[in-house]
């Protein structure tokens, strides 16, 4: 019972730092999706060079541990900027480095997701749209996109949860997120109540993951319900 009280107490101390986690995750999801969209376009482009580049990029990212990506961006970008643009970015908010690293990491699965969603919608749908007199853009927007969205949704949620978990490494370059906060609490207690503190931490992440899953399945259900009513 005492343990539960402790965990609840620690939850209260950790939650204020959730902002960092949310900002980092949301920014990387948005930026990573955009980059992923470009990559998906490159993968499906006519140009062999673009296609090969995109594939190599995705394959390298797939084999890169997130912590290494964060470290390489954190230590490498200032050097790059110094050498190429002669600007000093040492003073940047460290969060930016994490966001950049996570954006790069997220773009790979995102690109794959977009590509497979696009391919899952048959060419016939576009042709049918054109044949009833819609423009290609109208067909894409009104016919292809809604279908691709539903197809991509479950995998997208999966990637989002993964990103959220990778984001927990933000602390490794000294940003005070929930993990860093938890470690501080443990240090303040001279190493006492460590597992209770970390359980509180895990609990917060678990709830966010569950919320993402739940949200997605609700959206999916509402889409399926729509389909059914149309079918009847």
């Amino acid at each position: 019972m005492d343990n539960i009280k402790l965990i609840i107490n620690f939850l209260g101390q950790l939650l204020p730092a959730i902002n960092i986690t949310l900002i980092v995750s949301l920014s990387s999801i948005i930026l990573g999706s955009l980059l992923g969209l470009l990559l998906a376009a490159a993968k499906m482009s006519e140009s062999v060079v673009l296609r090969v580049l995109a594939r190599v990029y995705v394959s390298v990212i797939r084999a890169t541990p997130s912590i290494i990506m964060i470290f390489v961006v954190y230590y490498g970008m200032p050097m790059l900027f110094n050498n190429w643009f002669h600007t000093n970015i040492d003073g940047w908010n460290r969060m930016y480095f994490v966001i950049i690293a996570l954006t790069v990491l997220f773009s790979a699965p995102a690109s794959e997701l977009f590509r497979s969603a696009h391919e899952s919608i048959s060419k016939g749908q576009m042709e049918a749209g054109l044949m009833v007199g819609m423009t290609p853009f109208q067909t894409f927007y009104r016919i292809i996109l809604p279908q691709a969205f539903v197809v991509a949704l479950p995998n997208f949620a999966n990637s989002v949860v993964n990103l959220l978990k990778e984001g927990a490494l933000t602390f490794t370059i000294g940003v005070v997120d929930m993990v860093a906060k938890a470690q501080m609490i443990v240090a303040n207690n001279s190493g006492g109540y460590a597992w209770q503190t970390y359980c509180a931490l895990a609990l917060i992440y678990w709830v966010i993951s569950l919320a993402v899953d739940k949200g997605v399945s609700l959206v999916e259900k509402s889409y399926q319900a729509k389909r059914k009513t149309i079918a009847v």
Partner: peptide, 18 residues
């Protein structure tokens, strides 16, 4: 659900402290 919903770093910290 628990393992897949929490970061590996949290799992490491819990096991390593508990």
């Amino acid at each position: 659900s628990l393992v897949r919903g929490t970061p590996i770093i949290a799992q490491i910290l819990i096991v390593y402290s508990a």
